[in-house]
Design a protein around this nucleic acid. Structure first.
Lengths: 320, 320
DNA sequence: CTGAAAGCGCTTACAG
DNA sequence: CTGAAAGCGCTTACAG
């Protein structure tokens, strides 16, 4: 049955008839043991409860199931708290490879992954580890940030602020650096208090809004490092009777589903998370299925696009 | 190593020393083959991209990893489109059991699951199949609906509408039936056009809002079968310059993260999805680990609670 | 092209 | 309490 084309037609028919008759189902545990393949890969999320990852999972799962592979899921917290080692998934033959969506792994864990016997089959998606040499798939964070700042600039904003993601997060860092860089390119002023620290969450967006309200000299537009930040920011402003985009324009990054339905709907930078998942899965599968081939596509950077909605508008100079 | 307590201490030490020295890792494929257990369970979602399920997954995953089990994920669409059979996961020894979060499976698929050799290890969570005999875990849909209607009634609303979930969905049906029933109990009027068909999505909420706007005699409060519906409903009303709760009170069901941050924040019926996931996993594991024991807890119904926020208020009679 | 044998790495029962 | 043997159900190489 593994190689149906090398036997005669009559034998093939007899075999397939017998399969139907007896209801034979292959036993994957036996096959996995014999082939030394788990025929499954592990996807590691920072936090299973975060809906941001749903679409990426969908993309990964689609690709894997088309190749007959299963998708195992774990979250960083759990692996740590349960005392399991991440590298065990590879070493104990539970998974043939790993897609890691968490760039915030402990240095110690990263080290153990780097020297794992199956280190070649570890790939980062969305986030990545600065300094480590794992292949990765990510969005155009810099270009997306430039698009955001340019959009606000083209609306007439000259005082633009930024709410960052969590300190030490690679995405947050990349977006913040690109933000500062683009402001310089456009020769826009940047006061240090216009950069407000956050952490990608709704709650952090609320706190950032309070910081914005407390400023003497407020930016007329704010680029948030995630949509959730932006949504929380807008919500808190609204509670203090500030209107978006009338008093301040607000942008996010990600374009999650809710952004379109929020009031006001949110201008954002769209990442195609489904495609990101599919790309990650296909890159990893390529390595697993042809382990000897030298593969050159080490980092895939996927395009993002500006989605203009109601939360950004020309600055309302009289009010600011 | 499977039974460390039946050997002498000295032997035990020698074994564990050797394990450390050689870096021995158990091969799970071999263990799975020998024990005839996959040590993993499959979670089937209707749609991986739907963030509603994230917290349930987190709950399931926590419980499973505490028992040394892995979590496999698939979505109904994919299983169908890839031509795989759902029942194969059980039959080919990939999974020891299944938690199904989709009550909308084809009758044919349900039938194949019912006569599966491992049918005892299939459990429904959140949704369920009317007429089938699988164990299930669900929230108090009826009681939650009663709490919602009572809340609106106690605010003074006498004309209460409902936006339903998808036709044929068990949750939608349960909530709609309970809604009609509670209105009768409270002796409230119910016009047939006050029940608006939806499908749990943001987009359906928008369409339902248009239907509400088009009514001659509008309900002063609307109970939506999901938070996403309610959020879409509010968004669309806002685009037509209707204010919630001033022109109409709106409630949801689920209490998803965004509901707290929406403008206005959403009054809802809270389901503890994390706990639901943990309960489902624990019920299933009990069956898997003691297959001979007769287990009586066939259906677990978990409590829900009313969360009052800004989207509901006393009716504004002059405006309606 | 076909059939029988070996072996993947465990666990379990059994003999000593 | 300890050690050696059998076997889970496949796949792969090998002999016919």
């Amino acid at each position: 049955m593994s190689h149906p084309n090398i036997v005669s037609t009559s034998t093939k028919d007899r075999v397939f008839d017998a399969v139907k008759l007896t209801g034979y189902r292959i036993n994957r545990a036996a096959r996995n043991l014999r082939t030394q393949r788990a025929h499954s890969i592990l996807v590691l999320l920072p936090d299973l409860a975060n809906p941001f990852f749903s679409n990426i999972l969908e993309g990964i799962s689609r690709y894997l199931s088309s190749k007959g592979y299963s998708m195992l899921i774990a979250s960083t917290n759990q692996v740590h708290t349960s005392g399991e080692l991440l590298v065990d998934y590879l070493d104990d033959a539970r998974a043939d490879g790993m897609i890691i969506l968490d760039g915030g792994l402990d240095a110690e864990v990263v080290k153990s992954l780097e020297k794992a016997s199956k280190a070649k089959f570890i790939l980062f998606a969305c986030e990545w580890i600065e300094g480590a040499n794992f292949p990765s798939v990510r969005s155009e964070n810099e270009e997306g940030t430039r698009k955001a700042v340019k959009h606000l600039h083209s609306l007439g904003h000259r005082k633009v602020g930024h709410v960052t993601g969590p300190k030490n997060n690679v995405l947050a860092q990349a977006r913040k650096d690109a933000f500062i860089c683009e402001l310089k390119t456009l020769k826009l002023e940047l006061k240090s208090q216009w950069i407000i620290s956050g952490d990608f969450s709704l709650a952090a967006g609320c706190i950032a809004a309070q910081a914005w309200i407390a400023l003497d000299d407020r930016p007329t537009a704010v680029f948030c490092a995630s949509d959730q930040l932006a949504l929380g920011f807008i919500a808190e402003l609204s509670r203090h009777d500030y209107n978006v985009p009338y008093h301040v324009s607000v942008m996010g990054f990600d374009d999650i589903d809710f952004s379109e339905q929020y009031i006001p709907s949110l201008t954002s930078i769209r990442q195609d998370r489904l495609f990101l998942g599919e790309t990650a899965a296909s890159m990893l599968m390529q390595r697993i299925e042809s382990p000897d081939k030298d593969i050159h596509d080490h980092t895939a950077i996927l395009p993002v696009s500006l989605v203009i909605r109601e939360s950004t508008a020309p600055p309302n100079l009289e009010k600011c």
